[in-house]
Amino acid sequence: MLRYVALRLLYMVPVLLVLSFVLFAFLRALPGGPAIALLGERATERDLEVLEQRFGLDRPVHEQYFGYMRNLARGDLGVSIRTRRPVREELLDRFPATVELSIGAILVAVLVGVPLGFAAAKRYQGAIDQSSLVASLIGISFPVFFLALLLKYVFAVRLGWLPTIGRIDVRMLTAEHPTGFYLLDGIVTRDWDAFVSAAKHLVLPAIALGTIPLAIITRITRGATLDVVSEDYVRTARAKGLVSSVVNRRHILRNAMLPVVTIVGLQVGLLLTGAILTETVFSWPGMGSWILEAIRFRDYAVLQGGILFFVLVVVLVNLLVDISYAFLNPRIRYR
């Protein structure tokens, strides 16, 4: 197992190297550049040159790349052209926000999707099954940004039940944030008002972001459960005289969860993409809105650091999924 994990971590090195190069090249191949984005169209040639010189953008691309990689190896992600703050610092600000949002979305998807898919399979072709099929089709085909706007309009603007934007009430922005995860911060500092406020702010974005994974997880759970209920070992469990809740949980659901876990891992990558839209609609100060902003300003350092970090997270999460798979499924042993 350890050997397997070490090997998988080792594989990440070439993946990240190739990706960093492609990313670096593509960003610079894009028309426009940070200087013109910052100074505007009426900037003079001279102004542009000065700015490019200051950020080393006038040097040959390969020199810039090696310089960037040298700094990266030391943990230096460079400085944002737009805000002049170190990318690392901004990343540490933004990352917890996106993680909080993503965890919220995954929780919505799993806590609703697994029971729903299971219930649909148990009453195959019944009312729950049919309506969950329709609902998940809608869930998959509904554009995230539109759903986000709709949720915001109905529940925040019209009904006023939940806040419209941000991560926490503005009056509490000064609250202590030792971890950057606002819910966790609320617990750590025992600031329950902040906790409640952060939780309320999280609800709508988490639902908006969780809808597509929810639809997918519902379908996968349903399919996997349908496969498992007709397995011989389920009949064995019934013949043993076990209570049906034990048969459902221990014998059916446990086996049906195997494909679901894989899907959850794959969803994480999609989730981060979805986060860009959701964060924009809800002004959520996370990685998504940060990167969107960076694209507009051709903020090379932010884009490189942010996207590489995205990739790193996705790869690590999938490694975690594979490891957890070995614990769930005894037939799998990694060497």
Binding site: D232, T236, V246, R250, N329
Partner: peptide, 30 residues
């Protein structure tokens, strides 16, 4: 009655045992 008074053995032992539970668990749960 099931398992207590009338017990059953099935055809295919390859598929009649739950693959994700230890056999100890599967015997003791009965």
């Amino acid at each position: 009655v099931r398992g207590g008074e009338i017990a059953m053995i099935f055809q295919d032992p390859m598929t009649s045992l739950n693959p994700v539970l230890t056999i100890g668990r599967q015997i003791t749960e009965a």
